[in-house]
Nucleic acid binder design. Sequence first.
RNA 1: GCCCCCGUAGCUCAGUGGAUAGAGCGUCGGACUUCUAAUCCGUUGGUCGCAGGUUCGAAUCCUGCCGGGGGCGCCA
Length: 560
Amino acid sequence: MTPAELAQSLHAVLTGLVAHGAVALSAEDLPQEIVVERPRQREHGDWATNVALQLGKKAGMTPRDLAALVAARLAAEPGIAKVDVAGPGFLNITLEAAAAGRLAQAIVEAGPAYGTNDALAGERINLEFVSANPTGPIHIGGARWAAVGDSLARLMQACGAEVTREYYFNDHGAQIDRFARSLLARARGQEAPEDGYGGAYIEEIASRVVADAVAAGEPDPTHLADDAAQEIFRARGVALMFDEIKATLHTFGVDFDVYYHEASLHESGAVEHAIARLRELGHVYESEGATWLRTTEFGDDKDRVIVKSDGDAAYIAGDLAYYLDKRERGFDRAIIMLGADHHGYIGRMMAMCAAFGDTPWVNLEILIGQMVNLVKGGEPVRMSKRAGTVVTIDDLIEAVGVDAGRYGLARSSADSAIDLDLDLLASRSNDNPVYYVQYAHARTANIARNAADLGVRREDGFDPSLLDHPSESALLGKLAEFPRVVAQGAELREPHRVARYLEELAGVYHKWYDQQRRVVPFGEEEVSDGHRTRLWLNDATRTVLANGLGLLGVSAPERM
RNA sequence: GCCCCCGUAGCUCAGUGGAUAGAGCGUCGGACUUCUAAUCCGUUGGUCGCAGGUUCGAAUCCUGCCGGGGGCGCCA
């Protein structure tokens, strides 16, 4: 019996009480979703609900009296051992071992589907993340969005959404020009320009641009006039840099469905189209030689220039066009993940969304994630793109591997700035919780192998009433929480909840392993239903660990 | 000045109104002749930044302060 099933039973009981006039409430007063949770104290039972506390006042009775009414009826339901009223009016529910234990079989049979739901079924979501400019390798901050964004996409897919992962590829504008000038200068053996980029990768890309051009039978671009040379370095350099970024992300387990070129918005007329649309809607005006969007009408602090007085589109014009394009491509919801340094854009972006007639925070959602600070030897690491002292995803992968890197970045709330201790991560010690979780999975796999060798087969028997040890009850309860974690993680856009849950699950599993060790028969012992049933439980745990790690894009090793 | 995020154990961090606030690491001490000790058990550890408010109940919601981080361009 799962918490969701209990919630249904509770709802049925309450509906019955209302129908019989035992409680002065109408059916609409009942909460849509009755919260059934694990009580903190295990001795309080398997599950608890505060529903009587919530409804007591509305029903004109004390929460305890209401709880007592519910308890009497709920206790009569099959599979429920007892229902207690505690404290101010909590209902503490204890299940019969068999009712709790059947979950093990249900999980194994559901396999990869266990934990999924259809809360977002039919919803088309465009999730834009990373979107780092191709002027250098992706640094540690971008790595955080790669890990968190990809996991969020997986979570929303687990809830039935159709998710498109999108990377907005800025190949247009002043930063790209600086990048091209930096490449050219380096190729000519000159100092990087004042506002340019430094670092070894500039040298590498610059020499590859020259080599590629020569190999293609073109003249050495270093010898061309500045403008022509710079254009070659821009086009080829951006392409090379972007290929590297894609390859790195792929190694990191993150692949995008769409790489959207900013330049294409300007070339295709999408920008003019968006501006024309806004003009039609009456939100555009001309002033001081520039074209403005009246964002203040929709809550922004000031109006925004969309076409500068020199006739060039302002950066936000690209955002306007891009958002409209996403909507016209059929997405119900555009979600954009940005770093904390971009939070100031939220106001204008939401105003822009409203100006198009859409609903802010429904059709457009902006997630802000805080910074990643690096610590090495107890000292903060200063990063500088110009000096080339940037810690990149590649550095991270090299130091700790993909699994530890992704897990380390995804296990903290994006609302918190995190300190990544490079020494700790690089030490490859078991301080890293990813090993704790992965080891639990490897252990389940190992037990399954041993069981198979000794003739313990799931299909030969399953008796859930045998799962009556406290550590088994704890493990079953934790397994039952998984679907709720998935649903909440997706709804709140907080993949870190999955990681935290897995750490808890691994903990109760390791404890069970330590206290039971009875999946495989010892010595002359005959294989019994006890062994088989515990194998079901072992394999159910394995299923959930694998499903959870899958949501984080972290591997679930069979052996460690 | 205005806006956003954070402030919870020595450290890194969980905890979207519920019961005695948790985990890992760290300290100290235990457990491998049987399925992986990358594990487990015990021990140590807290004015949840401060002050008010909301209510049956606040780490959680509201207001004000304090401290840390980030941001407030006809840059991209």
